[in-house]
């Protein structure tokens, strides 16, 4: 799957999770930039990504995520 395709799917997921249709994803976007992005929302994103892409994250992988760019790289490595 190409990066633009991953960004497209992720954008829908993020907009649904935060209910903000103006949210645009950039590689450097992280939890501190989005008001409601707490640990619960983080898990919701992970669950949704796993479901949509049919992949599974390991503990170390989840811990290594610092921003959207990391997430996209991780998804790309698994799809």
């Amino acid at each position: 799957m190409t990066e633009p395709e991953i960004y497209e799917t992720l954008t829908t997921i993020f907009r649904d999770v935060f209910l903000r249709d103006d949210l645009d994803l950039t590689p450097t976007l992280s939890a501190k930039d989005v008001p409601d992005w707490d640990s619960f929302k983080q898990i919701e994103i992970i669950i949704a990504v796993e479901g949509h892409f049919g992949i599974k994250f390991r503990t170390r992988e989840m811990d290594s995520l610092n921003n959207v760019g990391d997430l996209v790289q991780l998804i790309a490595s698994k799809t």
């Binding site: 640990s39 619960f40 898990i43 669950i47 479901g51 994250f57 390991r58 503990t59 989840m62």
Partner: peptide
């Protein structure tokens, strides 16, 4: 994994 992370017995999924 989520049990260790957030003590969720029932997965959010």
């Amino acid at each position: 994994e989520l049990w260790h992370r957030a003590k969720q017995e029932v997965s959010p999924a």
